[in-house]
Design a protein around this nucleic acid. Structure first.
Lengths: 331, 331
DNA sequence: GGCGCCAACGTAAACGTTTTCATGAAACCT
DNA sequence: AGGTTTCATGAAAACGTTTACGTTGGCGCC
């Protein structure tokens, strides 16, 4: 038995008799032989692993994202190497560099990553797709959530139901999602010639609570509030409850993300939903397309994932031409 | 410049002049040189990666677990390769085998994994730690959540507050956590000479809802219900609400896990809390200890993580000698 | 000034695969 | 029957590192 025959047999490429194949197979099983992936990667240049660079692993968003990626990866026989970089750009750069020879492609979601960063740190031939990033490069496809349209639709929905004044709780300044959602709010308000009313927030529940109190302290209380994400909406909801207001009768409320909690607060929170798992899946599919196509991606380089307005009770409007999800789902 | 000098310089092992070190460093930066990890792994036998085998990636539990592992791994300069195996034992075996030469150690959480499985599929010299597993092997350390004590404490808490009859919503039969929690319930009830009242469930919200209806249909409605996990408790809560009962006045309710949602339902759910992230962290720390110690683990091979009773409103009891967490946390 | 020592550096082997190429035997065709 | 094709198999190169070992040259010491 030569190593060559063993290699051929175990990889099922033919070129071996059925008899020797069987002999090798029983020998391998008997010896608990498992090929060494490091050596295999070295010679083939493929690792069958894709890397995911994420800013953090906390919360439902990343959980779902990883799940979506993993599901799609598993289906294609690929492994998933996750890496969160909590530090700044330096940390992210270090992580990307250590991926060399360890992954066949990367999915990157990081506010520190721009085209320059990638040129500098990404091995020249490593395919990568960017998530929710503002960069617009011919080399790297980008998948974005259609935050602008989603926010726009929600504000329009609120305005369309008699809530003349809609306030907005903004997200952190550096966050791309937050910026886009604010843009959608601004556009919708401009179309209706409504006055802008924006208070600061940072995506945390506590900042939503503070923003809620700030809104209540305004001379003229807004009729509806749209928070840039659900956690802030929930914090805001507690501020309203604390002040003795009832939602949606006294003041309407809506969030963005459709996190699990949104179903379970009282009243159930109207929000803008995105299938995060689909986002992950799309990213992986685009990445594998890139890998197979040798750096040539078919179709547009920027793909946007549509959002949908999810109407529950907190916005005080039920209509039939939008998605309606009551909680719990099975009642 | 020979490759040897470059290797020495970049690994900082000395044996090179400060001048040549600098020369190599600028050349490396200029050429965007990054060492190939596959080749490095092949020769050194180390990958600086640890693998995590999980049954699924859905939900807060796994999200937190991964986060805990990742945080601890990142702190030690290790990468994390996650793999979920949705299929049965075959799938899990395949995953474990493909880890050969890809990871330095494994963290395994799977109901299909027993001592036999590991002997068969795990490369002989690969360190591994098991999570929440019934196996008791000298080779593999196990980290468990103290489900029995946690469930016991919660049932005792309910009984101690005048709820004479406590019913239990069980989890899926094959699940180790579910079994242990039921054991804790049985023990506590036996000590108080209370009658057992167990209905079936499978950890899903819907099964909790069905179990709730089943309990309400009983001739003598129980005074309190303890669900084996929070999602079932939430489903049960909806069944009670639907029937016009108020929790906790008409019937008390408690869950297990302290998932995020528990804070946000009305009334906030009393539950048994475990720091899942700590579980992941402990697992990783024990694994690295195993890796450094060349297969020799210091201390006991089985470690149990304590739970704590988290009293909110749904159990109708507030006392001061247990952890009390109101929602939201910052008010 | 010759000798030995030490530090810096280069050479080459090794890691465990895949893959190309050569070899030989068997089967096929004329 | 001889030549040609086909096919299973083995030998060996290659992948990009690390590391053991050998070589060089400079320096101090006798």
């Amino acid at each position: 038995m030569s190593v060559a025959s063993v290699s051929r047999a175990l990889n099922g490429q033919g070129g071996v008799t059925a008899e020797t194949l069987e002999r090798i197979r029983v020998a391998a099983k008997h010896l608990h032989y498992v090929p060494d992936n490091a050596a295999r990667s070295l010679i083939t240049g493929r690792t069958h692993t894709i890397g995911a660079l994420l800013p953090d692993l906390y919360g439902e968003f990343f959980s779902e994202l990883i799940r979506g990626i993993d599901l799609a990866a598993h289906a294609q026989g690929l492994h998933l190497l996750v890496s969160s970089s909590h530090g700044g750009m330096e940390d992210a750069a270090a992580v990307v560099r250590t991926m060399r020879g360890r992954v066949d492609g990367m999915i990157i979601l990081s506010q520190y990553v721009d085209a320059d960063f990638l040129e500098q740190n990404l091995p020249i031939d490593l395919p990568a797709v960017l998530l929710d990033s503002p960069v617009d490069s011919a080399r790297f496809p980008v998948i974005r959530i259609d935050n602008v349209a989603g926010a726009h639709a929600m504000v329009q929905h609120l305005l369309g139901h008699g809530h003349a004044s809609v306030a907005f709780i903004a997200g952190p300044a550096g966050n791309f999602d937050a910026q886009q959602r604010e843009k959608g709010y601004r556009q919708a308000m401009a179309e209706h010639k409504g006055p802008l009313n924006i208070v600061a927030g940072d995506f945390t529940e506590e900042s939503g609570y503070r923003a809620g109190r700030e809104l209540l302290a305004q001379a003229k209380r807004p009729r509806a509030v749209f928070a840039a994400n659900d956690m802030m909406a929930v914090g805001c909801l507690y501020a309203f409850k604390e002040a003795g207001l009832t939602v949606p009768d006294d003041i309407a409320l809506a969030g963005f993300d459709d996190i699990l909690i949104a179903r379970y607060v009282t009243p159930p929170l109207s929000t803008v939903g995105v299938s995060i798992a689909d986002l992950g899946k799309s990213a992986l599919l685009m990445l594998t397309g890139l890998m197979d196509g040798k750096g040539h991606v078919a179709g547009p380089h920027v793909r946007t994932l549509a959002c949908e307005v999810v109407v529950r009770d907190s916005c005080g409007a039920h209509q039939t031409n939008v998605v309606t999800r009551h909680s719990p789902a099975f009642i």
